[in-house]
Design a protein around this nucleic acid. Sequence first.
DNA 1: CACCTGGCTTGCTCTTTGCAAGCTAGCTAT
DNA 2: ATAGCTAGCTTGCAAAGAGCAAGCCAGGTG
Lengths: 163, 163
Amino acid sequence: MSRRTTWEGTACPIARAADVLAEPWTLLILRNATAGTTRFEDFRSQLGIADNVLTTRLAKLVDRGLLTKLPYRDGGRTRHEYRLTKAGSDALPVLHALGAWGDAYTSSDEAAGPMQLVHVACGELTRPGATCDSCGKPLVRDDLAWRASRLREGTIPLADPVG
Amino acid sequence: MSRRTTWEGTACPIARAADVLAEPWTLLILRNATAGTTRFEDFRSQLGIADNVLTTRLAKLVDRGLLTKLPYRDGGRTRHEYRLTKAGSDALPVLHALGAWGDAYTSSDEAAGPMQLVHVACGELTRPGATCDSCGKPLVRDDLAWRASRLREGTIPLADPVG
DNA sequence: CACCTGGCTTGCTCTTTGCAAGCTAGCTAT
DNA sequence: ATAGCTAGCTTGCAAAGAGCAAGCCAGGTG
């Protein structure tokens, strides 16, 4: 057989998580979903991913319970959007750990500052963790936003999970 | 062209980190390296990875600076071992974030308890973070060990980076 | 000398990625 | 009305990558 190895059901939770999350595009889809993207066409154009690959990735993420496919009205028509579930939104620490590692050990071709996290409740920057570095209050997802110094808009609120 | 997309040099640190870490096998190689594996043959037999794939993965990890290849003496001969660098050992939060997500949202076919982290200094379990849940002291890598309830040996110390 | 062992390399096959084109339902422009 | 556009897929093809197996080489040991 030469099918790619899967670690579904393995005893090691790192391997099981990697089996779901560590496929090409998957983490970037989750990143953009966390930043508020919900629609097929928006994922496609923001990521530059081939649409057949996007179809299979989104289907797998829905299957594994990280995204849900919900109908919405677009003018008079019904379309579908992909929204984060709790499982999908709880991948945030993985994204933050990756971002911290990427900031420390890789470099950008473009001028790009480090990834920043804003505690909207107090308005200050913080590192990911249990409490805010600036005001000391517990960090809850609703009060967090990403800030990318290279983008014109100030902050990107983190999308709420459905359900 | 149909070469797989790379995110090296991208402005987003998450994408740059995913480019290095989110390839098949890479995270599991780092997991085992963190648990103390250093030799080609041990990685091969522990992971069940094909040896040509292991060769390319190890070479890429050396190239990207997560592992170093060092000579060691095996009887009268010189062989090589792969040791974690600081960059490689600093991927630990990524492994912990994945483990936490995997514990919460995937399940094992075998009976396997959650992934556990032991603060060797005080002997108690803790969650990954800045300080120990039990004794409150700062968590440093040298004082941490993994515990897998399914393994007979009690704890697995975390490998020290070289350099 | 034959044989083993660790660490690769090469060859072949099957899967997956990327790209491009096509398809469909319902909308808008002419 | 008919022609075209759009979101979201599906299909077809070429190339890269993963899996398996076999071979190779250096430095042992029997």
